[in-house]
Design a protein around this nucleic acid. Structure first.
Lengths: 130, 130
DNA sequence: ATACAATGTAGAGTGAACTCTATGTCAAGA
DNA sequence: TCTTGACATAGAGTTCACTCTACATTGTAT
């Protein structure tokens, strides 16, 4: 299947302006039809899904652009791309670990607050909790 | 203990400009000494540590500012603050869940790549993997 | 043929979070 | 006393990732 930018925008949830911006930044290069209109295909759909994944995991546009360039160069860049992904997985694992640590601390703080609120009215002095 | 902005910057890892910016945005309000110099204390240290936690988990400055205002108002705002933290924990849990899903997909993709690289030279046709 | 909706390009504007510059003040050491 | 370095304020500049505007062109329905 082929899609106009409007259709593709709805399918990806990305906004027409954003799609044009991504093209300008070199993330995606849709075909053009006779009248110079962008013509996205199903491969673009899976590619955008992957771009969204990379973005949501904190990869900046510049780096995604680099990956896109390697991808466009075909099989000879397979191992370069894999190396990028392995690096990114490493960063992602660290990010998840940090967030889990933050979650533990946040849980503790909430417990502390729950306790404070329970007892604040039986005390005379204020606590000034964080 | 009390710290000048330079000392405090080193202790928090935050940069003098950033500390002044945070003050301007209402996140922190250090005392001033005789000569109008900022005078940070240990409570500021733990407060900044918590701000960094909130930031790293994706809370925007505006919202941290709101929390800071509640905090400055003392015990009467305890339950408001707890509600904010509970909400934020919810968002954090969702964020972690999303990242874990992304991690799984990334692992799969890396596995796919590993397999491609192993076999790409035994094939004649290019694969054009994502 | 005409109206109008969708698309095209180029470039400006936005918001978040810093980061830096210019200029001035002040306390301490040589 | 003079110089130096850390600090002060006000405001400008930067980067990122969009997001929007202005205006021209194209495809489609009547």
């Amino acid at each position: 299947m082929e899609y106009s930018i409007g259709e593709f925008s709805k399918l990806t949830g990305l906004g027409i302006h954003t799609l044009r911006y991504y093209e300008q930044e070199g993330l995606i290069a849709p075909e053009r039809n006779s009248g110079n209109r962008r013509c996205y295909c199903d491969k673009d759909l899976t590619w955008i899904a992957f771009i969204k994944r990379l973005k949501e995991t904190g990869m900046p546009i510049k780096e995604i652009k680099h990956y896109a360039e390697l991808r466009a160069a075909g099989d000879p860049t397979l191992s370069d791309r894999m190396e990028m992904l392995v690096q990114h997985r490493q960063a992602l694992n660290e990010q998840i670990a940090r967030l889990q640590e933050h979650k533990i601390k946040l849980d503790e703080k909430i417990e502390f607050y729950r306790n404070e609120i329970e007892h604040v009215q039986t005390r005379k002095l204020p606590t000034f909790a964080c």
